[in-house]
Design a protein around this nucleic acid. Structure first.
Lengths: 322, 322
DNA sequence: TTGAAAGCGCTAACAG
DNA sequence: CTGTTAGCGCTTTCAA
């Protein structure tokens, strides 16, 4: 089964490769007779153009890469799902790279741009220095990571989310609200969730209590830390968890410690992936518009690829799910 | 920022492109002097070889595609994670395609093989006819889908899983055990989970009760169906759910219907993704060796790519998590 | 030890 | 309307 090329088709049809190329791309003038001869040859040989050769010639791969910390993580897998779906509408294919929050990996994936394997890149992971990104040329958009002034960022309105959650807890009577934070770095707009919490607490003259649990920590370790909150002497009647998985740990521990939700304890999470809302129907959470984030990321990236002008920041609205 | 090519490097270094290629690939004889001149030029120009040109010449892309029903689904996102990690060890990149259980999409992704965009494909989705696959040439392995005799399959020991789960429930005293099944088609080895359930039930002279809930159904619809089991007149003291998400719905409904787990009702799920075990620490489930499945899939695919001999079936062991 | 030249499969001037 | 030819960036004979 050696590969059939355009040349074989041309020979079979008794025409030039140019003509075959013309019918393939529907470009220029082609007589009906020639077209049908070519079509027939294509059919008989069961020919499909070599896309790598095309990519090579056109310096355009119709491929995009998405870098995430890990694709196993409801937020990123949902994001990836929608991004792939959007891209496929325009005939693009999607590569996935798991940075594992390691700069070495991130750098490796970023290289795909320079190697011209992809036409663009969407990064939802940020572990290398800004200066390094400054040196990278190529089409990049970032999702929920501030990289530098050159790279457009798509984010949720994290501040609003933190505000809505905290205000809701207060409005429902909570006074001792703990914020469990994934403690993103300052580069991460997610840190605004905690800032909003602080602002709202201060405005209401309530005491802030922030527990930081690094995002990159292992799941069991994160769970242990959440449990510690329950075993500690800290008094609390509300929890604002920076993401839904942390919230689920809290829900889990609340049950073990016989604290009824929402009567004895109110919990609000963040992210609102379909999966987490599905698995925890009672979960109150700040819903990020993941599908819209995906759409916007793709839209902006495709604009960059087409050398169109884009904004440097897109902030999308969030809302409480109940 | 026009692209730097090997020619620019050659000119800068005052040598031929052949020589540059030689130092790039570390092939043939190169004097130290020449090598260092070339290295210097590469550095100064900040040159990276165009991988598409390489792929084109070598007819080898160092890319693989994974087709799944949807990447947002803990099982597949975890599988994708491990597959990507394995592939990257050998310098391969991974494309993801969501078939959405639609043959049109599946066919579209499969085309990537013929277009020579990828060196191989891992399919965890199967919605087109076997005859169509028969006509496809290219390196393919399938995960948990029986496609045809040509295509190697990697599967869990689904029968064993169903057996372990059902026996465990019986051993713990259950007599009226419902099996909630994702009702995979016959092509799917997952159907063996249910077959094992039936066998064990029959052997113990217990009445089978199978509730089928199509895998492709929407989440809320699936949840509704599980709820129906609780509202119906059916009497049951155990549930074997074909996958953990269904199990989680059952857990959820059990709580609403005040049926204590495991006192009043025992539930065992299937899949055992890290995520689900993490989110539901009490979940009893048949753990598929997802990481091993990924490793084996990649191993076999790379063997195919290297034209090595492979088996047609690899069945990997499963176990109960508690 | 190095270079010239061919060619991977395709598209696009350019000519006719 | 159709064909000839060059060339995309790279690797690899083949010669020197």
């Amino acid at each position: 089964m050696s590969k059939i090329t355009i040349k074989n088709v041309a020979e079979k049809a008794g025409v030039s490769v140019t003509s075959v190329s013309r019918v393939l791309n529907n470009r220029g003038y082609i007589s009906d007779d020639l077209r049908s001869k070519v079509m027939e040859a294509i059919d008989e040989l069961n020919y499909t153009p070599n896309e790598i050769a095309r990519s090579f010639y056109k310096s355009e791969t119709k491929s995009v890469a998405l870098i995430v910390p890990t694709i196993h993580n409801p937020f990123f897998s949902e994001l990836a799902f929608y991004i792939e779906r959007e891209l496929s509408k325009d005939g693009y294919h999607l590569y996935i790279g798991n940075s594992l929050n390691d700069s070495v990996n991130e750098r490796e994936y970023l290289k795909m741009l320079k190697e011209q394997r992809v036409d663009g890149m969407i990064v939802g992971s940020h572990n290398i220095e800004m200066e390094e990104y400054d040196k990278i040329t190529g089409n990049i958009v970032s999702v929920e990571r501030k990289i530098n002034d050159e790279i457009p960022m798509i984010e949720s309105d994290n501040y609003l989310g933190g505000k809505l959650a905290t205000e809701k807890l207060i409005q429902q009577g909570c006074r001792k609200i703990i914020c469990i934070s994934g403690s993103q770095t300052i580069d991460s707009p997610a840190s605004n969730r905690v800032i909003a919490y602080s602002d709202v607490m201060q405005k209401n003259n309530l005491k802030e209590q922030i527990v930081e649990i690094p995002f990159a920590e292992r799941a069991d370790e994160k769970h242990r830390r959440v449990k510690e909150i329950f075993t500690s002497k800290i008094d609390f009647d509300g929890i604002f968890a920076d993401d839904d998985i942390l919230a689920s740990y809290a829900i889990n521990e609340a049950e073990k410690f016989n604290r009824k939700i929402p009567e004895d304890l109110k919990i609000i999470g963040f992210d609102g992936t379909n999966l987490m809302q599905d698995l925890f129907p009672n979960l109150v959470t700040v819903v990020q518009p993941i599908e819209k984030i995906a759409q916007k990321s793709v839209e902006v990236l495709l604009q960059l690829i087409k050398h169109e002008q884009v904004e440097s920041l897109y902030t999308l609205p969030v809302k409480l799910n109940k």
